[in-house]
Simulated scan of single mutants.
Amino acid sequence: MEVINTSGRRKTSVARIYLSQGEGKITVNKREFADYFPSEVLQIKVQQPLELTNESGKYDIDVNVQGGGINGQAEAVRLAISKALCEINAEHRLTLKPEGFLTRDPRMVERKKPGRRKARRKFQFSKR
């Protein structure tokens, strides 16, 4: 099996992954996976597609992720892994699609408008 290269995005985070045959080692930005995502919730979020398709421990994943916060990065990695698993075996799509792991979440932070404090926040108004 050759190396599979996919990318995933969430908010302003972009994750590029290189998935190859191996023993289940995940490195994120040249650091240990558990070291980069210290929260157990984020670790579970990243491993969800592998657990769902029973592919955990079969592939080595090298991740480059940048931009955004730690939660957005974890969800970007999850999308990239899901896309890579579908490239390996098209039948994985049937299990990943209903869970929403193949859907790019388009929600972004709304920009600040001129004359306002935030995107929608208006200044305090008093009638008197």
Rank of each mutant, 00 (worst) to 15 (best):
residue 57 G to I: 14
residue 38 P to R: 11
residue 19 L to P: 06
residue 39 S to C: 08
residue 44 I to W: 15
residue 61 I to H: 08
residue 27 T to W: 01
residue 29 N to Y: 05
residue 49 P to Y: 03
residue 60 D to Q: 05
residue 27 T to C: 02
residue 51 E to H: 14
residue 23 E to I: 07
residue 73 Q to S: 08
residue 51 E to K: 14
residue 40 E to G: 15
residue 40 E to W: 09
residue 64 N to H: 09
residue 28 V to D: 08
residue 55 E to R: 09
residue 57 G to C: 11
residue 56 S to P: 00
residue 46 V to F: 02
residue 72 G to V: 00
residue 63 V to C: 06
residue 52 L to E: 04
residue 66 Q to W: 05
residue 34 A to Y: 10
residue 71 N to C: 09
residue 23 E to T: 10
residue 57 G to M: 13
residue 18 Y to I: 03
residue 39 S to T: 10
residue 36 Y to I: 04
residue 61 I to K: 03
residue 28 V to T: 05
residue 54 N to Q: 15
residue 52 L to C: 04
residue 24 G to Y: 09
residue 34 A to M: 11
residue 43 Q to P: 10
residue 33 F to R: 08
residue 62 D to H: 06
residue 27 T to A: 04
residue 35 D to H: 08
residue 31 R to F: 09
residue 66 Q to I: 00
residue 47 Q to Y: 03
residue 26 I to Q: 05
residue 31 R to V: 09
residue 57 G to L: 14
residue 35 D to F: 00
residue 56 S to C: 02
residue 19 L to C: 03
residue 67 G to R: 04
residue 46 V to M: 12
residue 52 L to Y: 02
residue 36 Y to F: 14
residue 27 T to E: 09
residue 24 G to F: 11
residue 68 G to V: 02
residue 29 N to R: 05
residue 31 R to M: 14
residue 53 T to Q: 00
residue 52 L to A: 10
residue 31 R to H: 14
residue 40 E to K: 14
residue 38 P to C: 13
residue 33 F to I: 05
residue 31 R to P: 11
residue 23 E to L: 01
residue 25 K to N: 09
residue 22 G to N: 10
residue 48 Q to A: 12
residue 34 A to D: 14
residue 72 G to L: 03
residue 37 F to V: 11
residue 40 E to V: 12
